[in-house]
Structure formats: C-alpha cells, structure tokens
Design a protein around this nucleic acid. Structure first.
Lengths: 332, 332
DNA sequence: GTGAAAGCGCTAACAT
DNA sequence: ATGTTAGCGCTTTCAC
C-alpha cells in the first residue's frame, strides 16, 4: 500500500493551489478548462485518488447508505437488496448491507456500528420497537421498509390487502376454516397479516385460528406440519418459507397438497415456483420497494416527507390451493 | 440530526485536556482511573460518541472490511457471509457486503467504490483476472476466497478433490459416461472442477463430456436439461442450482432421477436437501471459510503469509444418484 | 499522568 | 478563476 498522493502533491506538480485541485474533482465547472485538464493529467500521473475519509470529515457525508435486513437468508430480501443496490449505485452511493438475524438486540448492535459511518439507513423488516427506530432516526435519516412507523418515511406492501386476498381466494374455493401460521412476534408484517386474516374471516364467515409463532423458515414450516390439527383444510402461512416447509411436512407424513390441505404463502420468493405443487402466494413489488427506499433516503435532504407509501400486492395462484375435499367422500 | 458532542466539549466540561478524553476511549490504561471515570461520566451525560470518520482520518483505519461475492442470490455464499460476519464482529469490525453480479466489470466498479473506505477485502468467487485482483491487493490487503491466486492469501475448498470424489462415486455406481455441466467461464472453481473431472475420468475409464457453459442458476440447469443428449446417464453439474434446475427439467419432460439419470452438484446448499430426490453434492466448509478469510485479513498487519489454504470437501450422498439403468431392460 | 500543539487530507469561505 | 486560510474531530509526539 504505497503512500497515496494528495491534493498537495498534485498542486505542487501542476503549479496550482491545493484548492484548485480540490475543485477540479469535487466541483468541476468552477475551474478553468485548461487548468482542470492539466490538474487531471498530473493527478493521473501521480495516481491521485481523492481520500474519501478526509472528504467525509469536512463534508459530513460518506456516500454510504446502509440497508439492514432481518435475515439475509430470506430470499424475499433478494430483490429488495438488488433494487436498493441499483438505486444506491445510480445515486453514486455505496450500499452497506447488514443482517440483523431476526433479533432486535443484534439489530441494535449492528446499528451502533454502522450508523456513524453512513449518510442514511434503510431498515427492512426491522425487529426493533418503534421507539428504538425513532431513536436511530434521530441520528441519521431512516427509511422504514416493510413496515409503517408513524412520522417516519415508510414503504410497505399492503399486508392487510394481501392477507385479505389470500383469504378471499380460499373462501372462494369453498374453505370455511382456515389456519394462520404466525411468524416472528417482532414482525410488524406478521401482526398486520394476522389481523387482516382475522377480520376478513369474520366478514366472510370463515373460521380462523392462529397457530405458532414459528420461525420464519422452512424448518419452522415443517414443525408447523407436526402440530397442524388433523381437520385443517386450508392454511395461510406467514411467508413462503414456512409455507414450503409446511407442504413438505404434510407430504412427508402422507398428506397431499392441495387435495388434503390448501396452502398459501407470502412474498412469492423464487422457490415458490420451484416446489411441487407450485405455491399460491401473495406477491409484493420487492425490487421496486428496495429502489424507492434508497431513492427516498438520498433525495431527502432533511425535509418533511409525505405519508407512508403502501404498495399493492398481487395474489399469484399456483397449484397449492384447491377446493376442500368433501369430508365423507374417499379420494378418486 | 442534533450536533454531536466532541472531545472538546467533553474536555471542557470535565476540566481536562482534549487529548485526555481521546486517550480515555482509544487508549484506556494510559489515563488515571479517576480521571477516566469522570471523563466517561461527562461523556455519557453529553451523549458523546467518538467520530469514526475523524478517527479514521488520523489512524488510517476505518474498521470496515469488505466481502464481495459473485452473486448474493447464490445460497452457497450464505454461510460464507455468516462466517465472515461473525469473524468481523468478533474482531470489532463492520462488514461491508457487496455483490459483483457475476461480472468482472461490475466487480471492478464495486471495488473502486469500496476500496477507499475499507481496511481490507475478501473476494469470494471473484470473476476478475488474477492481474486485476493483484492490482486491488496493491491498494488494500486482500484475501481470496474459493480461488487460489499465487502470492495472495487464498482460501479455497479442494475443488479438484471434490470433483474427483463426485466422479468416483458415479463410477462406483457403474456409470461409464458422465457429462459435466460447465458454469461461468470466469469462474476459477469451474475450471478446477472440469479439469479434475476430465482427469479422473481418464484414470477411471469413464468417458467425460463437457456441456455449456450455463448460467450458474436454476434456470441455467433447466436449459441444460433441454440440451442434454438423450443417452446421458450421469451428470456432474457446476453447482447445486444448476443441478436442481437440471433435475426439474428432466422431470418435466418425463424423465426420472436417478432412474434415468444420476445428478451430482456442488456446494450443498440448503435446498439440496429440500428437493426431491435429495441432491447428491460436494460440500465445502463454507462458514469456516468465511470466518477464516476475515480472520486472515484482520490479523494480517502487512505480513507475509503462508501458502494457499485448501480445505477438504465431503461428498454428501442423497437420492439423486443411483446405478445406471440397464439399457435393454424396461423399468420394474 | 496530563497538557499543548501539530497535523491527517480535504473543503469552504473569503480575498484577490 | 484561483489562491489563502481556517478548520472538520481526532490521534499523537513531545514536554512538563
């Protein structure tokens, strides 16, 4: 790591003042074309690269934005990450991605480490309390993803509508009893989904029960399969991983999906279209959400902001849902 | 965001010199216990937090290490990321994760953005040339993962041995012709695997052919299924995603795995145990590799380093491999 | 053990 | 358009 050239080195060799070198790079246009050309030439010769740290110290901007996800192993975040990355890159920022491992405590730690280094923060699927989130927002601009926090820029799919569409779909198929497999208690999305399932159930005359909570993973879904009451004919799972685990669990003990039980998940992860049967699921515009979040972040120079941005969801119907089997009839 | 307190504020209120405040935090022990206590108290009162940027400017250390992966959607990296994160966290560092999207060009761009901000770099599955990697290593300490670059600290599974074990397994089952489904041309691992498959094939009297390259994804594997010669009875795929896509493709056009064709993958991703049949695959100690990489990075204060660290792989046999079907015999 | 003072490399008034 | 001059907040000799 050879000693890096500084603006002073370039200035000396180019016969100009350091500030001119600085302007050449940080404020082109504010400097004569010829001078700039010479400076750039000398800079190239010396291999000069502006020291981002020093720059950050004076401008109080690092050009880094952080994205925190609740579990980097959750494929749902994949498209969010990609969208966010693209937006960050387009804005000339570097994205710092971190994993809060489904733990408020760990999330807090991560924030403590990253906050001082970044210009802003996107919290996707935060497991912290609103209070803790607001505290973070007092230190750096924060955009909340997948959740709505009053008075903070929030972007979320319409969890309630999504859950409603899932239940309507099942009711439309003729199901009159539906189980909801709950996800992490700290998940805001889980709360929204469950409440909406419950309400919609009442409206449609569908009896709804809540099981869990289960870890938001395939393993969690498998466990749910063990505990599923025998009579259950339809299930709405917290997310696709749980749904996939459930289907597997049911199949392993000899049950059939959708013949014996219909299953719908949330998120429309890639694997939902890979499993057999394909998983009926509530899709959200993840990539767009990721992009919008960082756009909101970088464009937001400390101003007030519009109300929460709630994005539409879409029910993707695949093979995991079907009309209930008539109780008294044996299979074909 | 409210103006942060500085060491000067703390110093003034505590009645000591700024340098003492600095020492209290960066060099405890070099300051009297009582003084330190008072300083800490005042600091807490003022909500003082050391400015990492300013600190970085003087010490030339940011406390951030970068991990670049070739595709963040590749589950293989999941455990690498987790291992690396744990190690970074243990070393008191923040990890900056970035995705090079299977493109040398994009990887280069990412490096340009991140290099100036980090103390070191782990390149996992780099798609750049050795030359480009060495150039990066001249700017910051670099550890190469999943690949061996001469004269650079490298950590990689024994790709060659892994490929050999896969082929031996198939040969042991009685296969005499094996197809290798190639991955990205820029993948060092792909080169190692193919060469080893080829060599082992010659030694064992197994006829080996190479197909592809295919994108290292499930979709890539599906495509491979279309193009697979009818006679193929055994396949070694570049990685598990390709293998899974292949199996699906075969199944969709009515073929059976392992009855008609045996398939083995690489990496032992989570899904390998989820698909039906379970995927036989070559597993590597991914998490450990991730951890070792950042440990090597942070412990390496500019010193020379030992030779490439090559880690053992392990063949995990599941349901996707079986003896070849006797040509003339019809299925049971 | 503690203080004074000189930078780290850059940006940003202000002056010319 | 360019040069001069202060800092940004911290660490680090060097004295005391």
């Amino acid at each position: 790591m050879a000693k890096q050239a500084t603006i002073y080195d370039v200035a000396a060799l180019a016969g100009v003042a350091p500030s001119t070198v600085s302007r050449t790079f940080s404020r082109p246009g504010r400097v004569n074309a010829e001078t700039a050309a010479r400076v750039r030439e000398v800079a190239a010769e010396l291999g000069y690269r502006t020291n981002r740290i020093a720059q950050a110290l004076t401008t109080a901007r690092t050009g880094v934005v952080a994205l925190t996800v609740s579990d980097i192993g959750n494929p749902y975040y994949l498209e969010i990450i990609r969208g966010a990355e693209a937006a960050a890159s387009a804005a000339g920022c570097t994205m710092l991605l971190s994993d809060s491992r489904e733990s408020a405590r760990h999330e807090q730690q991560v924030l403590e480490r990253t906050l001082p280094l970044v210009d802003g923060l996107v919290l996707a699927g935060s497991r912290m309390s609103d209070t803790a989130i607001r505290a973070a927002a007092r230190q750096r601009p924060v955009v909340v993803l997948n959740r709505v926090v009053t008075d903070l820029p929030s972007i979320a799919p319409d969890h309630a509508l999504g859950a409603r569409s899932a239940l309507e779909h099942l009711a439309g198929l003729g199901h009159r009893r539906v189980a909801y497999l709950a996800g992490p208690e700290a998940s805001w999305a889980d709360g929204m989904r469950w409440r909406s399932v419950l309400e919609t159930g009442q409206q449609l005359g569908v009896k709804v029960t809540r099981l869990g909570p289960y870890p938001p993973t395939v393993a969690g879904g498998s466990r749910a399969a063990q505990e599923l009451p025998a009579a259950t004919g339809a299930v709405v799972a917290y997310n696709d991983q749980v749904a996939i685990g459930l289907v597997r669990g049911i199949q392993q003990r000899g049950g059939r999906v959708p013949d014996d039980v219909s299953v719908v998940g949330f998120d429309n992860i890639f694997a939902a279209d890979l499993v057999l049967p394909g998983l009926t699921t509530v899709a959200a515009p993840a990539r767009e959400m990721g992009a919008r979040a960082v756009e909101t972040l970088v464009s937001r120079e400390g101003r007030t902001y519009e109300r929460a941005m709630v994005l539409p969801t879409r029910l993707v119907v695949r093979g995991s849902t079907a009309p209930p089997r008539r109780k008294s009839t044996s299979p074909a």
